[in-house]
């Protein structure tokens, strides 16, 4: 029996625009399990990024509940939510959001420093390990503007993992990368997942989604379907891609 790590019930998100209500998420119920690599797919404007931001506490919900390991997130104050971001959640953005005047190493180590329970040396060591794992050791002392997009995004993944998060959120992490860099980033995420990291990723790209063990399909702010896949293996990419395509077709993708 899989353990639920994140659970949302009746999740709604609406935006007001010139007096008109735009309901982006409409009573979404969702469960994310410990150790899973879950992907939310959907077409542009389906609300998948909004769902990810609401689930991760990056954005306020209009109504509904989001629980992380049984703790309600929607009623947390800013300071309490910040502790979750420091210790429980990691986030990888579509754009390379690194602080421009910090080196890659500093971008990784600074969020780690927020956890006062860990010693400085411990954090530095972990940052070095992570940067080595994402293969940016040589570039670690450079500023984000001095490295390639792929290196920067890999450093962003290392940053997201510095706090040893329970759940890693990724919002189209390869959206701004070329093919080579996309492969590198996906390989990294897969490797971390194999190492036990729970991941929740949003994408509209089948090629990216096929790494997941569970795919949720979102359409017009509602979860329309779910596909469970066996663990990812490099030699099954073609058949996996076909299976997902067929499933998406059945969902009117």
């Amino acid at each position: 029996m899989k353990q639920t790590i994140l659970e949302a019930k009746g999740l709604c998100k609406s935006f007001a625009n010139n007096g008109l209500q735009n309901h982006v998420l409409d009573h979404v119920d969702i469960e994310i399990y410990e150790g899973d690599f879950t992907v939310i797919m959907g077409s542009s404007g389906s609300g998948k990024s909004t769902l990810l931001y609401c689930l991760s506490g990056m954005d306020h919900v209009t109504s509904g509940s989001v629980k992380y390991r049984g703790a309600e997130l929607t009623r947390l104050r800013e300071k309490e939510m910040a502790v979750y971001r420091q210790r429980e959640f990691g986030f990888v953005f579509q754009q390379v959001h690194l602080v421009s005047n910090l080196t890659l190493f500093e971008n990784v180590v600074v969020p780690g420093f927020l956890n006062k329970e860990k010693r400085t040396e411990q954090i530095r060591e972990r940052a070095c390990d992570l940067l080595a794992q994402v293969n940016v050791t040589e570039a670690k002392d450079r500023l984000p503007a001095q490295v390639s997009g792929g290196e920067a995004q890999r450093a962003a993944i290392a940053r997201a993992l510095i706090g040893e998060p329970g759940l890693l959120f990724a919002d189209e992490p390869t959206g701004a990368l070329n093919r080579k860099n996309t492969e590198d980033v996906l390989a990294l995420l897969t490797a971390f997942h194999v190492g036990g990291q729970s991941i929740l990723m949003v994408t509209h790209d089948i090629h990216v989604a096929l790494r997941a063990g569970r795919i949720l399909y979102l359409d017009d702010g509602v979860i329309r379907g779910e596909l469970t896949l066996p663990p990812f293996a490099e030699d099954e990419i073609k058949s996996r891609e076909k299976q997902i395509s067929a499933w998406l077709s059945s969902m009117d993708w």
């Binding site: 800013e78 910040a82 420091q86 600074v110 927020l114």
Partner: peptide
């Protein structure tokens, strides 16, 4: 970015 990695507004 800072907020996303756990810094508070304060």
């Amino acid at each position: 970015i800072f907020k996303a990695v756990g810094f508070t507004g304060e």
